[in-house]
């Protein structure tokens, strides 16, 4: 029930938008989002409602830590 899926916005109409993943499209409520939503954005969709616009730039620090983990452990072996 707490499963939310990242889906791509393909259309926006007032408080609702159409989101798509692997060819499946759904209507989703965006009335509670704080950000402006544009076509191409990725939203976290839960039970027909977007709970967050994904801020993908924020992932860079995590991906860097993953690289460091991989490099660190492979250099020790």
């Amino acid at each position: 029930m707490c499963l939310a899926i990242p889906m791509k916005v393909v259309n926006v109409l007032d408080d609702f938008c159409t989101v798509e993943l692997n060819g499946v499209s759904k209507t989703c409520f965006i009335g509670f989002l704080e950000d402006k939503i544009d076509i191409g954005d990725f939203l976290l969709v839960h039970s027909g409602m977007a709970i967050k616009k994904l801020n993908l730039e924020e992932s860079e620090a995590i991906l860097k830590e993953i690289s460091l983990l991989i490099e660190g452990e492979s250099s020790e072996s």
């Binding site: 029930m1 027909g48 409602m49």
Partner: peptide, 13 residues
Amino acid sequence: GVGFETTTPGTSA
């Protein structure tokens, strides 16, 4: 209405 704070706002809406 079942769930935590993920589904509660949906019930609010």
